[in-house]
Design a protein around this nucleic acid. Structure first.
Lengths: 193, 193, 193, 193
DNA sequence: AATGAATGAGGATTCATTCAT
DNA sequence: GATGAATGAATCCTCATTCAT
């Protein structure tokens, strides 16, 4: 039992536990105690490391968004043409790591958190801006003036698919979801060529 | 002051208050007391009429969905061509009565409620099925086999636009939102003709 | 068990219990639960009626100060000469109802509360001002210019005697304490005559 | 940095920090963590050196009383006549080092501590006895039989002035306070001569 | 000597819900 | 029909204290 340098380990465990707990309950109505228990520690320690429930939630958000961002970046780096770039972004959005029931539920609840907690709103806004920016960048060479419009629509479509998926607790069919959005993109792109 | 016949009035007042309260707080974390106060009665009476908090929420959901359904039906009745029918559905989705901050926030939270409360999930599922069915019905003559796909996409797009709007507390630009989705539909339809 | 008009009864019971509890513990470190229990109700009800611990304390202070003020007024009304008035004030300060262990301990702790809670400080300041004013008024005809000085000193002496008494848990000897201060006053007055 | 011989330094730092913390908060409701932080060490170390919160408080009391005692002794050694001795005691009571806001607040809270902790009561009782004894000793040659009475009164007056001062957060006017009590003493003494 | 890690216990506060009137 | 009265249960958070290193 190491007694030093526990902080990053504990924090990571709590963040992980928070996402799973929110996912399991489908609500932000989870107790710090439940999160801490799942993370294998006392609720007092959770408070010690994060200062409060809200900060725990925010850390979980940051973690989720960071993971998502990393997924997108990795996918982008493997893409060579504009079309591949756009496709990469969409596929990353529905990658296995993101499109799991608990993450979908967490995502939905982050939107709720954003209604109340300014920092949460800020995080989500940044995420949306980055997503749109990535899409515009990929689509500009192909769609010119329409790139903005299509990017916005694609972004909304992605979130809409997530929202729908939150109702279907059955194993999330990520390939299906990705295909759905990709079909739309293809449609737009074929049109132009 | 008649003592009888108050029930429907009280219930309506509570439902109305619930939506506003959820909208104002942006959360389901509203107290029965706050709802009852806004509705001008004691929380005990709220319980008397609804039996519990969950039922109050469900009533608020039913009310919201019913309003939305009515809006769609009215619009549909004024439409004559398939294209007009599709357009009517989209426009109704963003009508003034639906696309207001408090209703948007309530809508988001209904999705959260659906994660926990089976009846809530059922209601939302019914809503989605009806929306899709309406869209398919309208689009079939125009898009044939692709009608299902486009209907699904349109439905997801509508919800995605709602979700995005929940982050922008500024006065919801319903016309803008409707145009957004309609542009997509036009795009699909022109393609075919 | 009457179910209506309980508020004043409950509030009075809580105030009473608060003073006794502070007296018994000798500290402000009493729990709302303990106070409520002593008053025969749940802590939730205590919060319902007072809004919070601080307000309970403040109500207890107001009650104590009001009782003291009443004692003084009653005594003053029975006094005819200036000398009798001064004596009445001192005697009232050490009357049975005030100079009991629990009240003495409460008094001490009110001074502590006043370090933190502005309203508490205000109450104590008002009490001191009134005491001094009463004394000055009584002493002016006898001591002329020295009335202010002697009044201040008498007031400080009264509080000092209280403070000393807080250390002696044995049955407070109020007559002794009153005599103590009265001896000082007599000394001042004889000097002048 | 020597690892040995730290104990007295650490203890002194903690005692000092305790008085300042109590003074700053106006309450005994200070955390060991806050005290330790102010003293520049971990709360674990504070426990290591003192064994517990109560002992830290008691050490702070002892320190304060010892300082006061030293101040009195120094002043007494410079006094030659009985009258000078009495005056010296009073002046020492309001010396700059004692009559500062934080010390006044600490003093008040020591009285509270004495309600609960027997050792604290013992310390305060000893202090009072010593003060009275010093005063009696000084006053006996001048006042004979009345020395006891006047000593008691003076002691009570000193504490009363402290108590009043605890309400006035403005810079403690020690000279004023001392004059106040000295005026009383002069009055008693002139009377006799 | 010194501290980060860790927790159990406790306390203020909130709230849905029940009940007597 | 309507409400004030009342509470149990739950939750966040704090803190003194202990312990391994």
């Amino acid at each position: 039992m190491p007694k030093v340098g526990m902080e990053p380990i504990r924090r990571a465990a709590l963040v992980e536990a928070t996402i799973h707990e929110i996912g399991a309950q489908g609500t932000l109505d989870v107790t710090v105690g439940a999160i801490a228990k799942r993370a294998g520690m006392s609720s007092a320690l959770a408070h010690h490391y994060f200062g409060g429930k809200e900060q725990i939630f925010l850390a979980a958000m940051r973690h989720t968004l960071r993971l998502y961002g990393a997924e997108v970046n990795t996918a982008l780096r493997a893409a060579n043409t504009p079309a591949q770039r756009a496709e990469a972004i969409v596929k990353a959005s529905f990658a296995n790591s993101n499109f799991r029931p608990e993450v979908i539920a967490a995502w939905l609840n982050f939107y709720v958190l954003a209604q109340t907690v300014p920092d949460a709103k800020r995080l989500l806004t940044i995420y949306q801006a980055r997503l749109r920016s990535n899409l515009v960048h990929a689509l500009r060479p192909l769609l010119r003036a329409r790139a903005d419009e299509v990017a916005s629509r694609t972004a909304a479509l992605i979130d809409g698919v997530y929202l729908h998926q939150s109702l279907v607790k059955s194993k999330a069919q990520h390939s299906q979801a990705a295909e759905d959005v990709l079909a739309y993109l293809d449609f737009e792109l074929k049109e132009t060529m």
